[in-house]
Amino acid sequence: MSIAAAIGDTLEEQPHKNKPQKQGRFTPYWLLLPGLLWLTIFFIVPLVTLFGTSLMTPVPGGDVGEFEQTFHFANYVDTLTDSTYYIPLFRSFIYSGIATLLALAIGYPLAYAIAFKGGRYRNILLVLVIAPFFVSFILRTVAWRQILADEGPVVAILRYLSLVEPTGGVYPSAFAVIMGLTYNFLPFMTLPIYASLERVDHRLIEASGDLYAKPFTGFRKVTWPLSLPGVVAGTLLTFIPAAGDYVNAALLGRPSNTMIGNRIEYTFLSVNDYPTAAVLSFILMATILVLVLFYIRRMGTEELV
């Protein structure tokens, strides 16, 4: 519930019926100071530092991991034209895009079923949606590895149905990675959609029926537009973390399924090539921000129509 509330309000500003009315001139700044200071020092300053790091070059004759600031903007060109980096970057957006669509296809009907057919058990069904969070997400991903393994149940069924070769499997593969991403972020898709479906006034849907709309037309013209804020929030909350994730690709994929997160982690923590890792982080963040802004604007205008 709390997560749903949090997510639902992330994008839309709370409409205040009553204007803020306290007058203390400096009070709000004292309230904001500690939290914003924390975010400034540990979120904004690091981003600036990261940008600085992305322009560094190795110290001539220095050790591994020693870099100096030379404002070498060519780092961006070098990294973007290197296929060991741009291919995983591209792959990340493909994988997380597919996973987001799959999560929408699973999460929307699920949220709809809970909101409109759940009756008095709605809250308990919602708890079941959040329940997987109570088990560490890495353990759940490892569990998928066992479920999808060659001697596991999924492969047995697929082999029986001749959907895979008698010796074939589904793990490790791109399929397993996308399935894992879909799985891990499905609750983030379902909860905001539920939150906006729950607020839909049932009389509007009835009214569309009274005006001779077929059930599907009623859904398309009434329910779906009203649930769009939830869909937007859900797709963002799935797509953004999925694009940067590396746990699923590391646990469920082959080396040929690496995503940009794996590259960043490896370059940063194993190779200690901080500038390249910083460049990759920045490109990832910039690409996501551009996609998100474009998406929000587009959905915003569609909603008005």
Binding site: P46, L47, L236, I240, A243, D245, G261, M285, L289
Partner: peptide, 10 residues
Amino acid sequence: ATPEVVLGSS
């Protein structure tokens, strides 16, 4: 709205 790898690495 920032992926965790970026928060972590920065």
